[in-house]
Design a protein around this nucleic acid. Sequence first.
DNA 1: AGTGAACTCGAACACTGTACGAGACCCCCG
DNA 2: CGGGGGTCTCGTACAGTGTTCGAGTTCACT
Lengths: 242, 242
Amino acid sequence: MCECLYSWRMTGKQFTSVWIREPRKATSPGRSREEIVRAAVEMLDGEGLGGLSMRKLGARLSAGATSLYWYVANKDELLELAYDEVWAEMTVPDPDRVGWRDSASALAYSMRRVVLRHPWSADLIGRLPALGPHAMGVADRMRKMFRAAGFTGVDIDFANATLTAYVFGMTIPEIAWNTAMGDQGYDAGEMRAAVAKAAADHPDMLERINMAGYDDPQAMREMCFDFGLVSVLDGLERRLAT
Amino acid sequence: MCECLYSWRMTGKQFTSVWIREPRKATSPGRSREEIVRAAVEMLDGEGLGGLSMRKLGARLSAGATSLYWYVANKDELLELAYDEVWAEMTVPDPDRVGWRDSASALAYSMRRVVLRHPWSADLIGRLPALGPHAMGVADRMRKMFRAAGFTGVDIDFANATLTAYVFGMTIPEIAWNTAMGDQGYDAGEMRAAVAKAAADHPDMLERINMAGYDDPQAMREMCFDFGLVSVLDGLERRLAT
DNA sequence: AGTGAACTCGAACACTGTACGAGACCCCCG
DNA sequence: CGGGGGTCTCGTACAGTGTTCGAGTTCACT
């Protein structure tokens, strides 16, 4: 499963990001950066992170592989651009209308849904800088939300980081699981047996595996997410009390 | 920054893991699987995930590149093996002696430290199945811990997942930041200016960037981690009250 | 008509993981 | 002593990857 491989190129480059570099003067020709990013997102949605290659993306746009490099400096830069599109789909309800807790809760669920919808983004979260306009927008609204809740100073950012860490920390493995299982049909019994084998030395773990609910992991994970979210929000609320 | 690239091979393979497959009969020749994994971990520690290639690893062991495939089916499998070594370094104090809360807290800090020590593992967390003996051991001890705390049934696993999600969700971006900054000297002022540019449209975000503490991100992140951890543990404690 | 910028892209480079098959070693059995 | 036959090594080759380079094309404007 999880047939993945990564690589960090170790070129000692400067800290850069598409959002920081001076953008190329827009000239709106036939091909545009927007069009390229859109096609990239489609390709990523359809084939996953490994399914996107510059050559294939070029072919999809009826262009030579290396033509894209006119609009985009890097593949990484392209990924940054695509990544920001994902943030555009996350919604933060107005805390002044629904209260900060409901707002935070809705945001958490929105984040989870969006990432599940674009599984490739899970591999980018926390690894690519989220400095794009959409990511900034979400961060900004989150700050307002936690400020409305009563947090002040650095605590606003701490609360922010805590909630984000929880949501993504919970969702990332969920996606890995989904894609591993989604490749071919998922057989609960077979799966259980496989994991049981790995847990053979730990009777306590075996008990867990044989527990009710293991057969419907979808529902289980939803319950788990909610349990954790309520806990995190309770914990944050407690910070406000003192 | 973050000059990374990933790829998911899309071969529709079966769900497998080193820990599930029947292991090759051990014959202890000159080269051994243990030795290979040890060398791989060293290489990963030194050069990061992208610094490990089968050819280079082979060269380090004075072996041909493809010789390793006798001991290891895949690069992924090798990574699974290396990954499990990381779990071996995480410690869970006995909850019966120090109480579940201190035990959980110490574990969280231990996890963070270990992952920071092996930054490459952050790219594997939640993506590779953690079914190795060491990962199982930690999971087992965590179950005991939360059971000792008073959780029952699925709540044990929910609490487990919540804490893990928080710790890793907090630590993963921390590492991305570290490696991006570590490549060359980190200049606080320059960095601040760069991010400020990205946040130009959000005065609230700018306020954050100009806040005290932004110059010592190391200390800041430690405080942040603690803030979130206390919140999460408070939230979990609250689940016990009802 | 000429100039220079905007843009395209084929070829090449240096990598990657890994399948395959030929060979080397060595132990054991006849 | 003469072979198997398993264990193990590894050179070669293949199909990819991101990216650089430089030559070529198109086109608007002077």
